[in-house]
Design a protein around this nucleic acid. Structure first.
Lengths: 223, 223
DNA sequence: GGATGTGAACTATTTCACAGCC
DNA sequence: GGCTGTGAAATAGTTCACATCC
């Protein structure tokens, strides 16, 4: 058996991504160390939660100084990032697709959008936000050749399942689905739905009830 | 004390939104009844979970027939929707903002986007996807006058906090935040972050580990 | 004094499993 | 036989609270 899985809680993974961003901000501010209560203040999680999350990835600080900002960023990268970077394909170059392309092509990170696809002949062949757009017919071959690991689906609901099937056939192991429909995929493919209607309805529900409020994560996300 | 709050679990609220969509699809297919295992198949939740969710909103079916499709849709509407509809303002008419406008103005639902705002003079005054775009300076007055309950923030990260403050001052009780930053708001305002970087990183993490997989829901965000 | 690291308590959520009904 | 409704068990996640260290 492998040398004991660390087994980081599901929710912690999402929060680490946020802590990393805070670490980057702190670094840009020239800060070298940070206390859990300060990460708490910037993320909305409790200080105890921050400490527990960092504990769960085996990252330790010192009572005197708190946590080292650069070490924190490095440790989170070790957990979240794969050494060769994450290769992502985006399918559906509408407004939403363009927004996501612009977002990821703007900053450098472990994630790179290596191809975009669209059914429309008009969009295919063009370059949007620095990413070449291919016709959807090229998807299976190109995703395989480029070693795409994650697909982002930003097509209308009625095309989403078909796209998901193509992505899975092309060897994709994870899908972020923005279409308002649930996808059927084989075991071994991880799907996360980002359902804008659901999020707005949920916020509406808690906004209208509730005197007291709290933050949450889309799950989840939002994710 | 009020006549006993039903107190529907947090996560159930998000799933109800999905069940409602399934109910609408079933209705369109002419189906009058549905079994929990079928809702399960269409949403990826277990049948037991579906039954427990429906139980928690006091909705019952019959062992012989399952659940009534129209009654289900009605009951979910009673729980999620406010009688007068949810009034939403969208701030930031970039690609993402336009995508969301297009989405909500396309279908009729309890949610209506009653105003959109943008800092750019160029965009203000125009009509996008059937929704008039106002300059950001009009936000406080207009949101108050229109009785906006929920704000959707689709501006860049560095403007998000400022926008959130304006929305809260204008009496908004819920915010859906698509900017990659955590907002500070007073208690009583419900914030849900939909963080696309976080979602992609999370999917990347579970896609690369994992032989077995499962679906999930943003919140937490993602939504 | 104020911070981390963490067992233990607590809360939330999901799943099991089965009685009762058609 | 197959389905709903639901206590009870199991699991997941969060918070408490305090020993320990600087």
């Amino acid at each position: 058996m492998a040398p004991t899985k660390p087994d980081v809680p599901h929710r912690t993974i999402a929060r680490l991504s946020v802590y990393r961003r805070v670490a980057a901000t702190l670094r840009a501010e020239g800060r070298l160390t940070v206390y859990s209560h300060e990460i708490s203040g910037r993320t909305g999680n409790t200080a105890a939660q921050v400490r527990r999350d960092l504990m769960s990835i085996g990252f330790t600080g010192s009572p005197a100084r708190g946590y080292s900002v650069p070490d924190l960023a490095d440790r989170i990268a070790e957990v979240l990032d794969s050494p060769e970077g994450l290769r992502v394909a985006l399918v559906g170059v509408g407004n939403l697709g363009r927004a996501i392309l612009a977002y990821f092509l703007g900053r450098r990170s472990n994630v790179s959008v290596v191809a975009a696809f669209d059914a429309s002949q008009e969009k295919a062949g063009r370059v949007t936000h620095g990413c070449r757009v291919f016709p959807a017919t090229e998807l299976p071959r190109l995703c395989r050749d480029l070693g795409v690991q994650v697909g982002v689906i930003t097509v209308p609901a009625d095309a989403a399942q078909e796209v998901a099937d193509l992505l899975v056939q092309a060897g994709v192991k994870g899908i972020v689905n923005f279409a308002p429909t649930r996808l059927r995929v084989v075991r071994g493919v991880y799907v996360e739905d980002v359902d804008i209607t659901t999020v707005v309805e949920k916020v509406g529900y808690f906004a209208l009830r509730n005197g007291g409020a709290m933050a949450d994560e889309p799950e989840e996300s939002g994710t």
